[in-house]
Design a binder for these strands. Structure first.
Lengths: 146, 146
DNA sequence: TATTGACCTAAAGTTAGGTTCATGCACTAT
DNA sequence: ATAGTGCATGAACCTAACTTTAGGTCAATA
């Protein structure tokens, strides 16, 4: 099964311009063209695209994804590099999730806080509380100092 | 307790230039200066900064954080807006976490895959598997089509 | 045959979120 | 007094990741 750029754009909810941009940046090394230069996306290229989406989500930059795609072409001698890359990326994403969960706690507190405030029609702020008030246990979790 | 910009920079691991940038963008509405124009960060402003960090992490843009900071100044009449904002941001961050967990599954599979490949010294790719091979159950989880 | 729609390109433009630069002021230590 | 340190400013610069623009090809349809 092969797809045109328009079909892939619809399938992945990615603008056509983005797909062309990825191609130009060297992310789609397996992408073929027909005799008149029109891009034909194979299963393999679709698969690559899925992986690209995942790596982007995990915070990887285009230039590093490109490097990985080159390694894939180079065969067995780059296996260890590729492994290391995925291990790094795993740590990275796991840490991201933890950070988001910390942020979520503060946001959840604020959701509760404003729900109360809305019920009461005002923020009855406790003495010594600041305008951007948050309780100490949340402050502790969400520390930017060290 | 009050802090200079340098102290806050150290405390939050943020460059001084970034703090000045936030101030310029109108994120630090409670920030005061001394007679010679030097910024003095109060507890309240530090608190604001913690909240800013959290909102940034949750994917909010500077201009929207600015809007929120203005609402905080405006008092009770903006409570409902602020509540809605945090509810939106909560959904957003919860969804982000889910997406990251999906990406993590693929990355974890790849970690396993390359660990095997490294042991064997090569990728013994299954028939009909592509260069960017991933098993169907992972593909299913990590769908970009709908 | 003419038009339409989907594709192509290179190059310029855009946006967010900073960072760097050149210059100057105020305080402290030598 | 002078040198150093930390602060201030506006303006220019930077980077990543796209997006837009202007112009062109090509195959199928009215």
């Amino acid at each position: 099964m092969e797809y045109t750029i328009g079909e892939v754009s619809a399938k992945f909810h990615l603008p056509i311009s983005t797909l062309r941009y990825y191609d130009k940046q060297g992310l789609l090394l397996t992408l073929k063209r027909d005799r008149s230069g029109v891009r034909r996306f194979s299963e393999e290229t679709i698969e690559a695209l899925r992986l690209i989406e995942c790596l982007k989500k995990s915070g990887m930059q285009i230039k590093d994804i490109k490097e990985f795609m080159l390694w894939c072409q180079e065969g067995n001698k780059t296996i260890s590099k590729r492994k290391q890359m995925f291990f790094r990326q795993r740590s990275h994403i796991q840490n991201e999730i933890l950070e988001l969960q910390k942020a979520l706690q503060l946001i959840q507190y604020k959701c509760w806080y404003y729900e109360e405030a809305e019920k009461d029609g005002n923020e009855k702020r406790v003495k010594n509380m600041t305008l951007y008030e948050m309780p100490d246990d949340i402050k502790k979790i969400y520390q930017s100092s060290h």
